[in-house]
């Protein structure tokens, strides 16, 4: 048993110290990122690996609150990118992050309708119609909290048929045509392709969602964590994010 452990330790040590790259960072960097960042962060990760030979970016995409809980339970993450400041606060409260998080992107809501707009949705006021099938995010998740804010600002009482557990579940209902309208993030409409049409509405400005990012205090690879953070905040990072539909902070 001891010998097995010794060999394992040697192997691990070997993994941790490959030839240093030009930028001085190397090794694995583990990024915990909100589910809505899946497409854009995968792309950023690939670009980062190309720019920093010898590095490998590993992602854990999930709901921001689940990620915050995993971090607080001691998950070995280097970087945390949250879809809402509230979830970032969960990890700064426990001192898992002591640095000030940086807002790197903003997301706004958009009305999503199935291809061809069968419910003839024209604006936010249609969400009050009881005869239309409406899907919203549950208030407990960030997109639901944002939807609530928007309806309050517009003084509209929405008549939803379902309050979904996350924004992707809402989108599934729209793309299958099960609902006539839904509120999701602009980036989700963009990622959904042709089956979903997005409609802007003026009240969306009442609920702009900030995405904060921070390196963890106990990051196993602090140097690479900082390099990845810088890359997200760089012009190249901003370009990838804006292509995905995010607004600059």
């Amino acid at each position: 048993m001891k010998r097995v452990l010794a060999v394992a330790a040697l192997l691990l040590a070997g993994c941790g110290s490959p030839a240093p790259a030009q930028t001085g960072v190397s090794g694995n960097v583990t990024v915990f990122a909100a589910a809505s960042l899946t497409e854009s962060f995968r792309k950023l990760g690939e670009e980062f690996e190309t720019a920093n030979p010898g590095t490998k970016v590993t992602f854990n995409f999930a709901g921001s609150s689940a990620l915050a809980q995993q971090i607080n339970q001691g998950a070995p993450a280097d970087v945390f990118a949250s879809a809402a400041p509230a979830n970032m606060k969960q990890v700064t409260d426990t001192k898992a992050v002591t640095a000030t998080p940086t807002t790197f992107a903003r997301n706004t809501l958009q009305i999503a309708v199935p291809e061809g707009n069968p419910g003839k949705i024209t604006g936010l006021a249609d969400f009050a119609k009881a005869d239309l099938k409406i899907a919203l995010c549950a208030e407990q998740v960030p997109c639901g909290a944002a939807s609530k804010k928007v309806f309050e600002a517009a003084k509209i009482t929405a008549a939803p048929d379902t309050l979904e557990q996350d924004v992707k579940a809402v989108l599934t209902k729209v793309s299958l045509g099960e609902v006539d309208a839904a509120l999701v993030y602009r980036t989700d409409v963009k990622a959904a392709g042709d089956k979903v049409e997005g409609k802007d509405f003026t009240e969306a400005s009442n609920a702009v969602n900030d995405y904060p990012i921070a390196a963890l205090d106990k990051a196993p690879n602090a140097a690479a964590a900082k390099a990845f953070l810088d890359y997200v905040l760089s012009d190249k990072g901003k370009r990838v994010l804006s292509e995905a539909g995010f607004a600059a902070p």
Partner: peptide, 24 residues
């Protein structure tokens, strides 16, 4: 949650309530 959705009193069963409570 996929087929029936989630609406209190109509389709929110205990497992759905547990899942959403876990969020906050």
């Amino acid at each position: 949650i996929t087929f029936a959705g989630n609406f209190p009193g109509r389709t929110t069963t205990m497992p759905l309530a547990v899942y959403l409570a876990l969020e906050t």
